[in-house]
Design a protein around this nucleic acid. Structure first.
Length: 285
RNA sequence: GGCGUCGUAGCUCAGUUGGUAGAGCAGAGGACUGAAAAUCCUUGUGUCACUGGUUCAAUUCCAGUCGAUGCCA
């Protein structure tokens, strides 16, 4: 049976380097599982592997999409499975690397097939959430799926909205829909977790943010500024610039003080992100 | 030098008409099935600058000291 080796770890822990090393050792290719490196418009800010790194081992799912045509876990899972099937024709091991817990889960264990809501339904629920607050969606969920109602985070509007979308378009409960049995994977899964001391990780993050700034992150952010309302751009490393430019009224060049301010915000938000990944890893590795 | 303002949680600050104090941020922990670098939740004892005084009781009022800051000289 073929296998995948998943390289996991928080952001800036050195996953890319480790994955390339492994791929070279095993003479195989790398499948990326990073929900932001999918997008061709995002490079510096999402720490996309460099040209040299990409040349050192063949990568899949890097810069393969536009932020205007975003991925979702399910489509990604389908594409990734198809890609793996092909790769297994020539390699018995494939290296998977990424920091997006949900996406790794989907690849490793599968994810339920759920119907897509119509854009109108999504809009309507979003409007309700925004104008009438979570309570209104909560009340609907209580009727449509009491079981899920009992266990969701009732303060998390996004979660509730999503469950309602599924309930309404499927005509069944969300609970029921997500408990469909998932087919066995035709490959074995091994994991490599990169552990770092907290202090070290923080230093690596700070250093990397400084490098990103030096590489021209501001210019990259300015280029995608007009697309800032798209979901994939709700991302650490970009949103901090957008916030400042929105305040200023336009994406003007930043003074060195402002650059420092943005860099500090990115460092902090990246740390928060790393912590969330660590929480996820504790449970899933 | 004179006059004034300030000194409260790691940071920015609120507050106590006198009964030993609370927000935001940071920090820590957690949730997670098509937005996931997203979204959301939990968690706040600190010589209330220091020393005296008044008072049953002072972080709060008074005096002095020290530090910061502003204006005037």
């Amino acid at each position: 049976m073929p296998r995948i080796i998943i390289v996991m770890g928080p952001t800036a822990s050195g996953k890319t380097a480790r994955a390339i090393e492994l791929a070279q050792e095993l003479d195989t290719e790398v499948l990326s599982c990073d929900s932001r490196q999918f997008y061709s418009e995002l490079d510096i800010g999402v720490a996309r592997p460099s040209a040299e790194e990409l040349a050192a081992a063949k990568h899949h799912f890097i810069a393969c999409r536009s932020v205007q045509d975003p991925y979702n876990v399910f489509t990604y899972e389908q594409d990734a499975l198809a890609c793996l099937e092909k790769l297994f024709e020539r390699h018995d091991t494939v290296v998977v690397v990424g920091g997006s817990g949900l996406y790794i889960d989907a690849l490793r264990n599968g994810i339920a097939l759920l119907p897509d809501p119509t854009p109108e339904l999504r809009q309507e629920l979003q409007r309700k959430l925004k104008e009438e607050g979570v309570e209104s969606l909560r009340a609907m969920l209580r009727v449509m799926d009491p079981e899920y109602y009992a266990k969701v985070d009732l303060a998390n509007g996004v979660r509730i909205q999503r469950a309602l979308e599924v309930c309404i378009t499927s005509g069944r409960t969300y609970t029921e829909m997500i408990s469909q049995p998932l087919p066995q994977r035709p490959f074995a899964v091994e994991t490599v977790v990169i552990e770092r001391e907290r202090e070290t990780l923080r230093e690596r993050i700070n250093l990397r943010v400084d490098q990103m700034m030096a590489q021209g992150l501001e210019t990259e952010a300015r280029r995608v500024y007009p697309l800032r309302h798209l979901t994939p751009l709700n991302t650490v490393g970009y949103k901090e610039f957008f916030e400042l430019w929105d305040e200023m009224g336009s994406p003007l060049p930043l003074s060195s003080v402002q650059q420092q301010q943005v860099a500090d915000a990115i460092k902090l938000n990246t740390w928060h992100y790393a912590k969330k990944q660590l929480t996820w890893l504790k449970k899933k590795k």
